[in-house]
Design a protein around this nucleic acid. Structure first.
Lengths: 193, 193
DNA sequence: CGCGACGTTGATTTGCCTCAACGATTGTGG
DNA sequence: CCACAATCGTTGAGGCAAATCAACGTCGCG
């Protein structure tokens, strides 16, 4: 397990010397998360940002009635992490679980601070990262408020066809803000046409 | 109308020389938007990021049935803008309208590029800006999926008590993803207790 | 003054949820 | 290698939160 993928992702936006690559690589902690196990847990302060090297993770929170709500999936090449918990150093409300055998790099929050101090050009990388994520979130919010459950499912399939191989339908339903029962009924209606 | 407020906002995160302040200030285009008029229009490519110096703006989009959905309010000290339209140079789906007499600074997208090239330390400022906005969006999404209409209204009042002076209830309803009629019923139920 | 925008109210409808039950599949321990 | 439990997707009946539609009073403004 090496940092090639993550370095490659960063190099698309920031040019790095080989020394910088070495320094960068030294700040990421590689680890494996087995299927069904947790990378982060609600109630604990987030350890840092996570880069998914392979496999698939999902983050979710539990509401007061005990229902889980998936807020993000992350496959190879994606970042995940609870920014609120990280920046304020407060307990996270999100749990991050592996949906498959996964290799991840942890960028601990103090390392992230160090990193951005030593290599301020990386601010650009994270600025772009967050900017794109923001666009995605705005789009989801738009759908949540103006689209029916069926339209949201259509949009999801178009955008993330690859996820269906990893993710049980009930989690997709949760991500889309509907019950698994209702998603099932949507799928049925669709087959009948 | 001067750039004091915006410079002040930036200075909280990045230290600037007086030369840099001058350069910065030269890139912002001040303008006034009268109540009911538009700063940006759906269908046009976004002109740039907008900093609200005074007054209040709101951004919304129209779905295919012609219903409007408010996605953001912005009062003094806030940024607004359609990042998707800006980064990809495609027509925006959002319209931005003044809810009161407003003074805004436009940071045209090519100026933003120039700015970040000349003063790369500002990447930090925008990184933080987008990072915080991301946290807010995640929170809204969480509420949209797990809270009732009444809970969302409570949360809104707690978080943005100042907005009620500018914003008609129907827009607050829209922002919260409910109809004005239903918001009215929530308010009534609440008075009766 | 009169018009249009806004907030409100009530009656009715609907999209989606809840609950309960059932087959199919997977995995697990004896 | 089989029996059993657990998980998943599905189906149907019934219920509820919120939308829709229509009507009405109020207010600010041209």
């Amino acid at each position: 397990m090496n940092t090639a993928s993550i370095i490659n992702s960063i190099s698309k936006h920031v040019s790095l010397t080989s020394k910088e690559v070495l320094y960068l690589s030294s700040l990421f902690l590689p680890s494996k998360v087995h299927q069904g196990e947790f990378a982060e847990k609600a109630g604990e302060i987030s350890k840092g940002m996570l880069y998914v090297n392979s496999g698939c993770l999902m983050s979710y929170f539990s509401d007061k009635q005990g229902n889980d709500h998936v807020i993000q999936f992350a496959t190879a090449g994606w970042w995940t992490g609870d920014l609120h918990s990280l920046t304020r150093q407060i307990p996270s409300i999100y749990t991050t679980k592996a949906l498959a055998e996964s290799e991840v790099f942890l960028l601990p929050s103090n390392n992230m601070d160090k990193l951005l101090e030593m290599l301020p050009t990386l601010e650009h990388y994270f600025r772009i990262l967050f900017q794109n994520s923001l666009v995605t979130h705005q789009h989801r919010l738009m759908l949540a408020f103006s689209a029916t459950a069926e339209e949201r499912y259509n949009d999801f399939e178009e955008k993330y066809p690859a996820l269906e191989q990893y993710v049980p339908l009930k989690y997709i339903a949760s991500y889309l803000g509907m019950t698994p029962e209702f998603l099932s009924k949507i799928r049925r209606r669709r087959m009948e046409r």
